[in-house]
Structure formats: C-alpha cells, structure tokens
Computed example of a mutant assay.
Amino acid sequence: MTLVPGDWDVFSIKYADRNARTRADSFIFDDNHDAPHAMDYFMWLLRRGDEIILVDTGYDHEEAKARNRPIRLDPGKALAPFGLKPEDVTQIIVTHLHYDHAGGLHLFPNATLHMQAAEMAYATGPCMCHDTLRMPFTAAHVCEAVKRLYSGKVIFHDGSAEVSEGLTVHCIGGHSRGLQCVRVRTHAGWLVLASDAAHFYENVYSEKPFPIVVDLQDMLDGFATLRRLASHPGLIIPGHDPLIRQYFPQEMAPHIHRLDGGPMTQPDGAD
C-alpha cells in the first residue's frame, strides 16, 4: 500500500511481562477464572519524519523492586534501537497515571506531557483516600506529573483533542477516571492505542471488563468507543496483550513490533 504523506509510524515497545496471573486477574465474571493468563507491559512510540511522540513510559527498576514486578528492560534504554536517548523525547502522551504507564516520567526530563485534566484531578483528589483505588498509583509518579505542571510542561485535554495532525486523544475513563486512548492515522487506517481501555483483545471483542475499575459503565461504553474510532477492530491495540507480538511484525529488536501496517493476520474476534 502506498504511504500517504502525513501518516504515522507506530511501534509497541515491550519492557516487562508477568506470567504468574490467572484469568480472574483479567476479566470480571470469567467462568475459567483459575486458568493462567499472562500479561505483557508496553509503551508505544509514534514517528513521522523528525517528529517523535512517546505514549506512556513504563516503570523503572526501583518501582519494579517495590512492587515485586521485575522489568526486562529499562524504559529509557528500550528506545536505543530508534537512535534515541531519553533526553531526546520532548512530548509524551500519558494515557493515565497508573504506575506501569507513568512510572518512568522522571526518565524523560525534557518532555511535555499530554494528559486528561480528569486524570490529574482523580490522582490528586479524594478518591485516593481509598486504598483500593490508590493501589495502582505511586505518589512519586503523581508528584512528578505535578512538578512537570509547575514547570509549564503539561498540556491538559478535556475529552477529545488533537495533539498533532493525524493524532488525537479521547477520554475513555472506566479503568481510571481520566484514562485516554490515542487515535493515530496510519497507512493501514485509523489505529487506536487502547492502553488500558482494553488490556486484552478479549476485553474489547467480548465486552468483558477488567477487574481494576473506577466506573464500570464508562469501561463498557469505552469498548464501543474504541470500535468507533478504529478503521477496523484489528487496528485496536490492547494495552497488555501478549498476542500483539504474534499479530504484528518484529522490527529492529526483539522487544519492538511495528503496528502501523496492520496485523499480519486478523486477531480472533475481530469482525
């Protein structure tokens, strides 16, 4: 297919995985709740000419030790195959402030953050009085976002907004109050980085909610939003599904897969 000027290159970057999980950790009301269900951890890189935008940052070795969730690759070093150092990144879309998506903000000191205003309000507001809702956050990561705000390096969005030509964000909520997905124009069509609006293909394709949730209706409504935003369900990219590495080609290094050409075969359930 001919590349249309202005289309984005999109890459998934795997930095960690966790295999000691079951389907009960991934789906509410799952009949096969005790079956194993592994999870991969990704961040994403968008590239168009000299323009580079990072989507989320992963978490570092200190956070990995604190949560006993080891990482395989330092998020900053994970960008080396692109010829990038962390200091080269000047824009980051933060889908939400959970530890595994914003735990590496401090590694990218020159970046301006794109966030939903609702996420900052949620992560610094009264909901954090509840241990269950606070659990996926780490105070130091939230404080890093606040420090970035006070240095003039946060751009807030309220709902849907254009970050750059052919690149938009859309507030989904559900998993976290200000969770946003990222819609990217590629030569395969409109691709949607769901982040945790759909951890796995099965979440969105079968409309099965993930257990960590602040608003269940928003999460369920979000599955329809993901389908509406993507040109095809196969261009919805879940936030943590190991199947990504089967459906999309490896590029440059074992931890990097290229997404903008679309899947090599359509994911099961994509229709």
Results as ranks from 00 to 15, higher is better:
F29W: 01
G222H: 03
D268Q: 14
A188V: 06
M39W: 12
Y59S: 02
L73A: 03
H33N: 10
L73Y: 01
A253T: 08
L193M: 13
R48A: 09
K85S: 11
A20P: 03
R228G: 08
C143G: 07
H187I: 04
H114I: 11
R245Q: 13
S160M: 10
A198G: 09
D60G: 07
R23A: 05
V192I: 13
H240N: 15
M43D: 12
T168C: 02
H141A: 04
F210R: 05
A35N: 09
N68H: 11
M120C: 00
V182C: 04
A78G: 15
V214R: 04
M135S: 14
L113R: 03
I172Q: 11
V182E: 02
R185K: 14
G269L: 12
G222V: 09
A270P: 13
D25E: 04
A24I: 06
S26K: 09
G159T: 13
H96T: 09
G125T: 12
M252C: 12
V204H: 12
P238C: 13
P233C: 12
P81S: 00
W8D: 14
T112L: 00
T95R: 07
F248A: 01
V94P: 11
P211K: 11
A198K: 00
V204Y: 06
H257S: 15
L167T: 06
S160G: 07
D25T: 02
R69Q: 14
G6T: 10
G6I: 08
Q246Y: 08
G83L: 06
E51K: 10
K208Q: 01
D215N: 15
I13N: 08
P136H: 03
M1N: 09
A224F: 05
S12L: 14
R21H: 04
D196Y: 02
A111C: 10
A66F: 06
N32Q: 12
A64S: 12
F210V: 10
P109R: 02
F248T: 11
L235Q: 05
K85Y: 06
T225W: 05
P126H: 03
P136G: 03
E63T: 13
G76C: 04
V4G: 04
H141L: 07
A224Y: 07
D7S: 15
C181P: 09
E63K: 05
A16I: 11
L79H: 02
R148Y: 00
I172C: 03
H141W: 08
R47E: 13
G125C: 05
H130F: 14
R148F: 07
A224G: 07
L216S: 10
V89M: 00
S26T: 08
A140N: 14
F29K: 14
D31T: 01
Y150R: 09
P36Q: 01
H106F: 01
K77H: 11
Y99F: 15
A230E: 06
S231Y: 05
D196Q: 05
C127D: 14
P81C: 09
M39K: 13
M219L: 12
